[in-house]
Design a protein around this nucleic acid. Structure first.
Lengths: 295, 295
DNA sequence: TCGGGTGATACTCGGAAGGCATCATGTTCA
DNA sequence: TGAACATGATGCCTTCCGAGTATCACCCGA
C-alpha cells in the first residue's frame, strides 16, 4: 500500500512536471522524491509518469490517478477538521462558494434556509468566480457552489436556483432615463459601454454578445465584477448590462432601466452545483431536505 | 499527517471494539496497534475512541471519522485498480477522428467492433478532414484516424480498411441515366461538373484528376464535403464524382451511375491510421485485438 | 486477595526514508 | 564537435520510525 506522502509527491511532480521543482515545493531534495514516485508506481503496479531525460509527462493511467490522488488528499485533509468540529460540539462544515452577483440576492435567504436545516453546521463562505468554484468542487475544497453555466454534467449535479433578466445600469439623470419604453440596442449606438471580461466573466460576456448588437468601438472597460461595473457607472464612465439582482445594490447615482428583446426573458441563470460524488454528510442531508435531485 | 495504515488500524478497532481482536485481524500484535491509534488521535487533534480498561467505544467524532476513514480507504483501494485498468487499455478514452465520407459506411460497424473489444472505453468521436486528423495524431489530441492517403509512413502506421470505386452522382432523370453501359469521360464533355476542393479534399481531387479527363471549363464548384456535393447534384447544379459509399446517402433526386475505366477498380482507399508512438494503452489493446500490424 | 482480561509502556532491532555525492544521458551553444 | 549544463536515477550513510517482546497498570469477578 502506498502512503499519503507518496501521493503528495506524485501530485507535486504531476503538476510541476519537474522533479527538482516538485521537490523544492515539498521542502525536500530530489533523490528521495524520485524514489518515492518509483515506490508508488511499484505499489500501484503501473507507470504513472513517463520521463525521458529531458521532460516528464503523465501517462494516461497517471492522468486518471492524479485525479484520484487529489481527491484522496483533499479527503484526508478534510477528515480531521470534520472530526475536530464534531468533537467541539458542532456537527460539521459546509464550504460554499458563490459568485459576487449571487451575493446580492439569493445568498442571504439560502443561508438562512441552510441554517434552519443544518443548525449545527458551520458554513464557510468564499466568493469565487464560476471557474474557481468548479476547481474547488473538483478538489474537494468546496462542497457547494452557486455558479453559472456551463459546467460538466458528467461530474457535477446541479439545481436551477433562479433566472433573472438583464437590465441596463445608467448614471442618474442620463438621457436614457427619460424613455418611457424599454431600451433598444439602437439607443445604445453612441453610449460608452462597460463590458464584462470575456475571460473572467465569460458567462455574462457571452450572454450579452448573443442577445445584443454591440458597437465595439463603444466598449470602454472589460471588468469581471458586477460591483465594479456598477461603480464605474456611478462614476459616469458609461452604461453597463447587469443582472437584475444588481438593482439591490444601493449605490447612489445609478439607475436601472429595462431592456427590450430577449434580455427581458430572464436569461440569466444561477445554479447550485455540487460534485456528484457527494462526500460531505452535511451536504447530503441538505440536498435531501431541499429536495434537490441527487443520485 | 496520519498514514493509511493508521486509518486501517482505526477502522479495525472501531469495528471490533477490541484492540486485541483488531490486531489479530490486521496480522499484528496489540501494542503497536495501540500506539498507531494514539498517533492517529494526536495527528487528528481529538479523541476518536473512549477506552476504559473494560471496553472500547467510539466518540461522536470517532463515528464521523470512521465514515471518512472508510471512504478514504475505499478510494485508496480503488485508485490503483483504476490506474491499472487504464494502463492495460481496459478502460479509458479513445479519441477517434473520421472523415465525413467514412461516416456513411464503415464508422458504424467499426464502432461496434471497438465497443465489443473495449466495452469500458469511452469513444470520443470527431469529424475531421484528413489533414486535421494528421495534425491531431501528431499533437496527441487524437488516438486513431479514419483517413485517406497520403500520410507520412515514418510517423504513422496504418491499416487499409477498405477500397471502393468512384461513381457518378447525377440528378434523377438526367439523360445519362439512360445509358446501359458505364459512363465514359467522353460522355461528360458537356456536363457541368461539381468538383472537389483541391486544397480541402485533395485526395479526391487528385484521384479524379489522375483518372479522368476533365474539361476545366465545365467545373462549377469546388467543395470539400461529399454531402454538399450530393446536395448540389440534387439541386440539379451538375454531376459529381463521389465514392461508392455515398450511395448510402438516401438523398432524393440523385442517382448514381458506374464509371468506366480505372475508377471501377476500387481506387478509393480508407485507412485507419495512428501515431507509431502509441501512447494510449486502449489503442494498443485495440490494435492487437484487431490484428492490425504494429511495431 | 488472587487470577484473568485488557490496554498502555519500555526497550530493542530492522528497515525505510531522507540527505549528500555522484552518475548517466540528453541538450544546447560556442 | 565537444564542453557545459540540465535533469532524473543510484549508491551510500545516517537517522528515525515502527513492529515485536516483555512487562506494567488497572479493573473485575470469584
Amino acid at each position: 500500500m502506498f502512503t499519503l506522502d507518496q501521493l503528495a509527491g506524485f501530485v507535486a511532480v504531476a503538476e510541476e512536471l519537474h522533479f527538482g521543482k516538485a521537490a523544492e515545493r515539498l521542502n525536500m531534495t530530489q533523490p528521495p522524491l524520485s524514489r518515492q514516485i518509483q515506490k508508488l508506481e511499484k505499489s500501484i503496479g503501473t507507470e504513472l509518469l513517463e520521463r525521458d531525460n529531458r521532460k516528464v509527462q503523465l501517462t494516461p493511467a497517471g492522468t486518471a490517478f492524479l485525479d484520484e490522488a487529489k481527491r484522496l488528499l483533499a479527503l484526508a485533509n478534510r477528515a480531521p477538521i470534520t472530526a475536530r468540529r464534531i468533537a467541539t460540539g458542532r456537527s460539521g462544515v459546509l464550504r460554499v462558494g458563490f459568485t459576487a452577483a449571487s451575493g446580492f440576492s439569493i445568498l442571504g435567504p439560502l443561508l438562512e434556509e441552510i441554517a434552519s436545516i443544518l443548525p449545527e453546521v458551520d458554513i464557510d463562505l468564499q466568493e469565487l468566480v464560476t471557474g474557481e468554484q468548479i476547481q474547488g468542487l473538483l478538489t474537494g475544497e468546496l462542497d457547494l457552489g452557486l455558479a453559472r453555466p456551463p459546467f460538466d454534467g458528467q461530474v457535477f449535479d446541479s439545481h436551477l436556483l433562479y433566472r433573472e433578466s438583464m437590465v441596463l445600469a445608467v448614471p442618474a439623470g442620463h438621457p436614457l432615463t427619460d424613455l418611457t419604453r424599454p431600451v433598444e440596442d439602437e439607443d445604445l449606438r453612441d453610449e460608452a459601454l462597460i463590458m464584462h471580461s470575456p475571460t473572467q466573466a465569460a458567462y455574462f460576456y457571452d450572454l450579452v454578445i448573443r442577445m445584443h448588437t454591440i458597437q465595439h468601438g463603444n466598449v470602454l472597460h472589460s471588468v469581471s465584477q458586477i460591483l465594479t461595473m456598477v461603480s464605474l457607472v456611478a462614476a459616469r464612465r458609461g452604461v453597463a448590462f447587469v443582472p437584475h439582482s444588481a438593482t439591490l445594490l444601493a449605490i447612489k447615482g445609478v439607475e436601472f432601466l429595462p431592456l427590450a428583446g430577449r434580455s427581458s426573458e430572464d436569461p440569466v441563470e444561477l445554479h447550485a452545483i455540487w460534485n456528484r460524488k457527494v462526500a460531505n454528510p452535511a451536504l447530503r442531508r441538505l440536498l435531501q431536505d431541499l429536495e434537490f435531485r441527487t443520485e
